[in-house]
Amino acid sequence: MNWLAHLFLSDDDIEHRIGNIIADWVKGEARAQFSPGIQRGFASHRLIDLYTDAHPVVARSKARIESPFRRYAAILVDVFYDHFLAVDWEHYCKTPLREWTASVYAQFATHGHRLPEQARAGLQRMADDDWLGSYATLDGIEATLRRMSRRLSRPNHLGETAPQLTAHYAELRADFHDFFPELQAYARAVRTARSEFIMAVIP
């Protein structure tokens, strides 16, 4: 899943949300400097990615991506699923998307000073350009893919792949709605297991 889903599936506390987001920017030993709350976000991000990558519905979506773009299928399905979460937001959240994203950006603004420059700058760009809300539009998806293509180290055609969404829109949308409730249940189970572990070790 991409950033909107990771944030949506996070705990409400800001450190967990930040860890879920900056997991893509902070790797390896650099993570040790962060608070336990942010590190829990790192762990949640990884678990959600592992569950998503192994799910048969996600595999079905990846198989819909046509050659020569199949090599980007994992990235595309992550981004396309965030689009469907944004488009059908009211199915999963009572708070309107614009109001929800504004509250997340406000949280980032109050905690950004605690983060390394790269992560702080990334969160600021996310808020300034409303990356989360932009998933709801096809133009926003194209802009996201072009932005991601510039982050890859080698020349690539990722920025040209947005038409794969419109070419398989209904099928991918159905896949998302088959998959996402199961991902929500998994994320809840992870949170419950963590809470039970904490209660077990606290005297």
Rank of each mutant, 00 (worst) to 15 (best):
I141Y: 03
V104L: 10
L172A: 00
R147K: 15
E142H: 12
D178Y: 02
T161D: 03
S103Q: 15
Y169N: 12
L165E: 03
F176A: 01
R173I: 06
F108S: 03
F108C: 06
T95L: 08
P181A: 06
Q124G: 05
P181L: 08
T110E: 13
H111G: 05
A189G: 15
T137F: 04
T166Q: 14
D129E: 14
H111D: 10
A189F: 01
D139P: 03
E117R: 15
M148D: 08
P181M: 09
A121M: 12
P181H: 10
T144Q: 11
R150Q: 14
A136T: 00
T137A: 05
Q118P: 06
Y105V: 04
T166L: 14
T101I: 06
E99I: 00
H113R: 13
L123G: 03
R146G: 02
Y135T: 06
L165Q: 05
A170T: 12
Y105Q: 06
R125V: 07
P96N: 02
Q107L: 08
A119Q: 09
L123W: 05
D129Q: 13
L138F: 11
G133V: 01
A174G: 07
T144E: 04
A167C: 09
Q164A: 06
P155A: 10
R114C: 08
W131M: 04
A167S: 15
Y169Q: 13
T110R: 15
P116W: 02
G122I: 08
D128Q: 15
P116G: 01
S134Y: 01
P155T: 04
E171T: 15
M126Q: 11
Q124L: 13
T137R: 04
R114T: 11
H113Q: 14
G133C: 01
E171P: 05
L158W: 03
R150N: 12
A121N: 14
R120S: 14
R150M: 14
S103M: 11
A189Y: 02
P163L: 07
F180C: 10
A174C: 08
S103A: 15
D130E: 11
Y186G: 02
D128I: 11
Q107M: 10
L138P: 01
Q118N: 13
A127T: 09
D175A: 07
W100T: 00
R146E: 12
R146F: 01
E160N: 08
R151Y: 12
L152N: 05
G133I: 00
